[in-house]
Design a protein around this nucleic acid. Sequence first.
DNA 1: CTGCTCGACTGCCTTACATCA
DNA 2: AATGATGTAAGGCAGTCGAGC
Length: 263
Amino acid sequence: MPNHLLLGPSGGSISDVGGAGETRPLLTMIDVTRALSVVATARKVSDEEEEEEGGASSLNSAVSSVGGKRAERHGLAGDDHDAERACFRVVSDEEDGEGSRKKLRLSKDQSAVLEESFKKHSTLNPKQKLALAEQLNLRPRQVEVWFQNRRARTKLKQTEVDCEFLKKCCESLTKENRRLQKEVQELRALKLSPQLYKQMTPPTTLTMCPSCERVSNPATTSSPANPQPSGQHQYSNHDRQTTASWVPFPLEPLFLDSIPQRS
DNA sequence: CTGCTCGACTGCCTTACATCA
DNA sequence: AATGATGTAAGGCAGTCGAGC
């Protein structure tokens, strides 16, 4: 089943369209489409000159072998594909050496239209592909390739962003782990000397409710919206609280504040 | 000259559909 | 008629090449 048929009206993210058993990325997608489109539209090419000279025709002059694999596989050299053949004719007329892969640079306008289309849906159905190709005076194969490359590069960019984020998470967790280990060591040392143990103040991070004997973390039980005095616990409210809001241990690790936020 | 970007290609995988035993 | 095996078409992705800036 063609993957585009699986997509909803919005087209979905690229992680949705993998045909080969691709899974969703671990992390929420950050919109790198915008970033990439900025790069694309900011490209400094001599497109304007090209357009002034009639860019479309010059575009079609630079094409490589006959539509690549698809043409080979699906017999595009046959009579059913006049459009493709027409393009090929243009190429064979103007191209000198066989097998030479001339570089085509899409014009600014063409890129912009493709970008707009990609924003709407990252994959195209055959109709959309043909329409776009016609609109931009490109071969359907070129539109197809552009979308494939665009998906690949968006995914790559997203992977880089995710990687950076995970690195920062890892750093934070390592830091927090060291801190906790140090705390454990300190507590063990104190336990070995009962005199000091009696005199010590309660652990900095965890406190126990004397009424219910549950451990809690003052830092997490008081939210910014509902601030409690530092280290103070609303024991009298226990019977009014649901079990969901009062758990033996903090639901979120203390160090979450130090984990970088994804924008 | 070098590095980067990006259009194009290849090879492989998956899915849908048609055909046949 | 229903069913499983097989072949084909079509689409996607990863990896790569190479032209152009």
